[in-house]
Simulated scan of single mutants.
Amino acid sequence: MTAATIQAIGIYVSASLLLVAVLAAAMRIVRGPGGPDRVVALDLLSLLGVAAAAMAVVISGSTAFMDIALGVALVGFLTTVAFAAFIERGSINEEEER
């Protein structure tokens, strides 16, 4: 086996696992029992977006995707902090969701 073949197999395996993780996070966002569970799943989804951009760097060799990964990470962090503030303030009430 050549190095290119091993890299191609690794990319396919990584992409498959990334897709499974995205589906699991999306299911938790839809079915999550409470607001905090949904916020954690949304944070995981943004992390998976960063991982997808990193995979795009490996596949294409273009470093432009690193800027995209940085932007997705920043937006994901800010949304997690904002949702945490809403939960702490009580704007997102778990009792109303049930």
Rank of each mutant, 00 (worst) to 15 (best):
T80D: 01
Q7Y: 07
I68R: 01
E97V: 13
I9R: 10
I68A: 06
R28S: 00
V75Q: 03
M27W: 15
S16M: 14
V40N: 06
N93S: 12
F83C: 05
T5E: 15
A25I: 02
A26E: 04
L42K: 08
D43A: 12
S46I: 00
T80N: 07
M1Q: 05
S14P: 07
G32C: 04
D67H: 09
T80M: 13
A3L: 14
G35C: 06
I87E: 05
P33H: 03
A56K: 04
F77I: 01
V72H: 09
I87W: 13
T79G: 00
L44W: 03
L48T: 04
L23W: 13
F86W: 11
L47T: 10
I87P: 09
R31L: 10
A24S: 06
N93K: 15
A69K: 04
A26K: 05
F86C: 12
R28P: 01
V50S: 01
T63F: 12
V58E: 06
V58D: 03
E95V: 11
V75T: 14
G76D: 08
M55N: 08
E95Y: 14
Q7M: 13
T2S: 15
G49H: 10
A85R: 15
R28W: 01
I92S: 01
P36Q: 09
V30Q: 09
G90S: 05
L47D: 03
E94I: 06
I6P: 00
A85G: 06
T63G: 07
L78C: 10
E94C: 00
S14K: 11
A52Y: 05
A25R: 02
G10V: 02
A69Q: 03
L45T: 11
E95L: 09
A73K: 07
M55E: 10
E96R: 15
L74K: 02
A53V: 00
A21D: 10
G34P: 00
V30M: 11
S14I: 08
M27L: 10
S16T: 14
G76E: 06
L42V: 08
G90R: 03
T63Y: 13
M1R: 06
A41T: 03
F65V: 00
A56R: 11
S16P: 02
V20H: 03
A4N: 11
L17Q: 09
L17T: 02
V40E: 09
M27F: 13
T2Q: 07
G76R: 11
A53T: 05
A53D: 05
G49D: 06
L70V: 12
V75W: 14
A69E: 03
V22T: 08
